[in-house]
Design a protein around this nucleic acid. Structure first.
Lengths: 264, 264
DNA sequence: CTTGGTAGG
DNA sequence: CCTATCAAG
């Protein structure tokens, strides 16, 4: 059994003060993919930087306080790689890969974008480049008998069931037709949306609720945090849960951990 | 009887959330001079912007979130003037005057400075220009049978008794020889340091304690908030108190109100 | 250590 | 609404 969690922590330092440390102590996960750590390793306290029983690998952004991904694992990875071979994005704290026995796990933080801004252009450039990388990654892995699991915050809701208010969001970044069809292409290229595969019925489960307004209390969420796995691994998924906090006050991020257990 | 308080609120919005509103409701002051309001009037809630029973006059800085002075009074001022005729400083939220019957009250926020920086040069320019203004103000007022009271954060400790650790601060902004002698010149020009006059024995009473370290708990403070009054008014001062909060947690600013009662 | 602005989400 | 950086104090 292998349990993998992915969670956008929205600032690891802030999360640590609000309950992340307790969650880390109690989780049954073997591997945790984090996004938006928003910190240099040196800025973290020891209990977050080097928690007992964990191997930690962090890929901060070259822009201080922005983005940043990490992979924490109980077993030591055989290898770790930062970035996906992109001159534009490799130092932006958006992609980190770790190899374990027969399995490559990645932590992804796809740019969030906003229609009509430079950041949407950036998101599109990332999607194009990263989509090509994903295809190659799957091919190499498959030919080596290795499975691939790309976890993270993709900042795209794929289908209507993946966000509470899809009609109002058809022209908003995160649910644009071109973003959705890009994600369809990724899936058609040999990846499985593990949570949706185990829970074919929507709506949800959502993994992100805006801090604005009453989004959390109204469960006005989006499912933008995914496990995308090669089919051999996806077939071994036995359970998937979104660890939504019971109350607003108990949250330590605007995202909830998405946790999947895979049979060995 | 006329009671006048002066207090650097260190952000009126922050202070309002921490106890300023309660203090305003309980104070016996007739006039309050404030410094570092750090807000546009429109950014304030109604209970702070227009508290019942008060006439409020604010002089924000043209630089958002910086400086800003105000005068709140139970009686409506006969006239209010922003600035002291300085092209450099009049829109910087550092000086506001209000006329009452036979009395001009001013709220001053003198630049704070730091040795070896541009901001110390700015402080020195302000001191020079403002010192000349003060002399003229006193002359005009006296010739009209009017008293003057300049309250505020002068960002200078005058004498050794005016700060806890004067020896260590002889080369620091706020206790430099040139700043101290400038203040002596102001006093020799016809103003009285009212609190020191009522409390000739130091050390203290301090009116500011840094948020850094344990300054408040150790009473490692500075007396930099003053009532400078023309002699006729200073002679009528009957009591002076610094309203130091009982505990760190009860503070709503790093400064405490300096409150003086004047006989009629 | 604290405030408020600002960028980013 | 929340997390950061930054300038200022």
């Amino acid at each position: 059994m292998l349990t993998v969690s992915t969670v956008n922590v929205n600032g690891l330092r802030a999360a640590a003060k609000k309950g992340f440390v307790e969650w880390l102590g109690e989780t049954g996960a073997d591997i945790i993919c984090m996004q938006e750590t928003r910190a240099e390793p040196e800025q973290l306290t020891a209990e977050v930087r080097e928690p007992e029983g964990w191997h930690t690998n962090l890929a901060p952004s070259s822009a201080k306080g922005r983005s940043g991904v990490a992979i924490y694992s109980r077993a030591e990875p055989q290898a770790v790689r930062v970035g996906f071979g992109s001159s534009e994005f490799d130092d932006s704290g958006r992609y980190l890969e770790a190899d374990f026995a027969g399995l490559t796990v990645a932590s992804l933080y796809l740019p969030s974008g906003e229609v009509g801004t430079d950041r949407q252009d950036e998101k599109e450039r990332f999607m194009k480049e990263f989509g090509e990388y994903l295809a190659g990654l799957r091919e190499r892995a498959t030919s080596q008998g290795r499975e691939v699991l790309v976890c993270g915050d993709w900042n795209i809701a794929h289908q209507e069931a993946d966000l509470k208010n899809w009609k109002a969001n058809r022209k908003n970044a995160g649910f644009l037709p071109e973003e959705r069809s890009w994600m369809t292409d990724v899936l058609n290229g040999g990846y499985v949306d593990v949570v949706r595969s185990l829970h074919p019925e929507g709506p949800g489960p959502y993994s992100w609720w805006s801090y604005r307004g009453k989004a959390f209390d109204n469960d006005s969420g989006w499912r933008i945090d995914y496990h995308f796995a090669t089919p051999g691994l996806a077939d071994r998924a036995t359970s998937a849960v979104v660890e939504r906090a019971p109350t607003y006050a108990e949250r330590w991020s605007d995202h909830a951990p998405v946790t999947v257990t895979y049979a060995r």
